[in-house]
Design a protein around this nucleic acid. Structure first.
Lengths: 196, 196
DNA sequence: CGAGAAAACGGAGTCCACCTCCGTTTGTGA
DNA sequence: TCACAAACGGAGGTGGACTCCGTTTTCTCG
């Protein structure tokens, strides 16, 4: 039984110049494609637009999920950073709300981020960037819970799933943006209520 | 511009005996297939298992959506009936909660119902069964709102979308059932809080 | 600078699903 | 019984996912 593929999801730093170049182009095109067509954008199309063969795409990113994660790597780092900053904010509850809102803004702009963040739980294998973001979010959540601002019977995974649900709820309506913030408010109100 | 296909989504009562028979078999197989593989089950497979050609499937149900709606027709009628019954219940708030819970139970058992209920909003064309169910749910919601048990800034569509979100949230986890009811509770708490 | 090996490339080929079109079969009413 | 509309079914075109392997490119070392 040989170990699955490369170290972290999709080898990060190829050695050869052409490989690195192709990886960059693929990521750039993939970001645009996912933003435009959602997470099911055609991989053959992405390869074509990046000017590489389909085989090259699959060598760099063995699964769709790997490509998605790589494409949203920067977004996730941004959200990680924001969570860390928000840890300084005076009100733990407000800090968490703000972060959840940021999450949704990113999700709206980058359709497909949602899937990245929630998908692949059972399949083990969480990318480092995603793990970092989760850890940062967990800290924010824990602080809010200790302050009594948020019910204690949820963890960071629940939170991610719920945000995912909110994003999906409003996805098909033309007035997505308004609905999303409306639904997020409702969910946040639900989080505030203590379990008992 | 000729009118789109037949009267309501997918002609309900074919005249010829063989047609009616095939329609039944298709529906039975489709229900099983959607339950097992979700709303993206292979249509060719459904046709094969029903012992008819793929052309026959498409003649009866021009789109996947039409097949889904027909397959879940009975479920929707049940939910409609339940909503009407619950209108008699003493506590308007509890009645709504109970109904939402039923919705989710059906959704869990019949993966894909969710999509049926939410999908096809913009595309106009709502099947009569769905419309009836919505109307019944709307009555339940209105009563709860008038009793002050539920915030007033949502309508039945919001409610359906939120329930859809809850179903999706918990879908990928192995412990779906527990998560679902947990998330539903959170959402219901959020609904209770009045907007101001 | 010029091999030669290793790494990377690319696309043809396979598989599978969607959906349409039209020649063939079947049920029904006269 | 027969004629004809209704219904059937599957071949075929489209397009995406993913694999495999002969060819090309890059890097390294003498």
């Amino acid at each position: 039984m040989k170990n699955r593929a490369n170290p972290s999801a999709s080898m990060p730093q190829p050695t050869r110049a052409d490989a690195r170049r192709n990886r960059e182009r693929l990521l750039a095109v993939a970001q645009a494609a996912f933003a435009e067509h959602g997470p099911n954008a055609s991989l053959e199309d992405i390869a074509r637009r990046a000017g590489v063969g389909i085989g090259t795409l699959y060598r760099h990113f063995p699964t769709r999920q790997a490509l998605l994660e790589a494409a949203y790597h920067d977004q996730m780092e941004l959200l990680t950073a924001e969570a860390k900053t928000l840890l300084e904010e005076a009100s733990p509850g407000d800090a968490l709300d703000t972060w959840l809102q940021s999450l949704l803004v990113h999700k709206l702009l980058q359709r497909g981020l949602t899937e990245v963040l929630v998908e692949g739980e059972k399949s083990g294998e969480i990318s480092p960037a995603k793990a970092r973001m989760r850890a940062a979010g967990a800290a924010l959540l824990a602080r809010a819970q200790q302050a009594g601002a948020v019910r204690s019977d949820i963890d960071i995974l629940d939170l991610m799933r719920l945000v995912h649900g909110v994003a999906v709820s409003s996805e098909m309506s033309p007035a997505r943006a308004q609905l999303t913030s409306h639904y997020l408010k409702i969910m946040i109100d639900g989080l505030r209520t203590s379990p008992e």
